[in-house]
């Protein structure tokens, strides 16, 4: 994953960059399987490696496929990134170790889901149960966001197409 990201930074061919970001998503999906997030890995593989790559390719077709070599200074962004990163690394020193069952995140809400969700919803997959039932409002909001994004894309991209369709009708 680190290697693909370094390549993405270095390269200027947008086509290669989009392909690499697909590979990056696939690697992320395999990592998600390792940490037991099977549902998430599923989605990441289908979305990241599939649909978002296709969408980016579609955008590339409309926008040209090479990046202009930037002539701007990159020292300041690099400095900001390094300083922020250093601050975050300092922050992780207090974090619980990877896989620690005593970590605070596992103490509060999760035991309820793990112990009771089968009896309360009769759905063995806890992720589905929490997604649709316990956090129903949350998911409703997310679906509304997706709905809005779809409408937004339609509004942005189909205006000229409608005009064109009228011309076609006139021609025919």
């Amino acid at each position: 994953m680190v290697l693909t990201v370094l390549l993405i930074i270095r390269l200027h061919n947008l086509f290669a960059i989009v392909m690499l970001s697909g590979i990056f998503s696939l690697l992320a999906a395999t990592f998600f399987v390792v940490v037991d997030g099977v549902d998430v890995a599923f989605t990441e593989a289908a979305v990241g490696a599939g649909i978002s790559t296709v969408l980016m390719l579609g955008a590339l077709m409309l926008c040209g496929r090479t990046e202009k070599i930037p002539d701007r200074k990159t020292v300041l962004p690099l400095l900001v990134a390094v300083v922020t990163g250093a601050a975050l690394v300092y922050g992780t020193l207090d974090m619980p170790y990877y896989g620690d069952p005593e970590a605070p995140i596992h103490q509060h809400v999760a035991p309820r889901y793990i112990n009771d969700s089968l009896a309360e919803t009769s759905v063995p997959n806890m992720v589905t149960a929490v997604l649709a039932s316990y956090r129903g409002y949350d998911t409703l909001g997310e679906v509304a966001v997706i709905f809005t994004a779809g409408i937004g894309v339609l509004v942005l991209l189909s205006r000229i197409k409608l005009g064109r369709r009228k011309e076609d009708e006139d021609a025919a």
């Binding site: 997030g37 969408l55 980016m56 929490v130 994004a149 942005l156």
Partner: peptide, 27 residues
């Protein structure tokens, strides 16, 4: 812990929707 999985599951799909919106703006 199933809770992060739930949060991220929705975040991924919302992420691709917003990505599409951004690409549409770029076009």
């Amino acid at each position: 812990n199933p809770l992060p999985h739930v949060l991220i599951l929705t975040a991924i799909v919302v992420g691709v929707a917003t990505l599409a919106l951004g690409l549409a703006l770029i076009v």
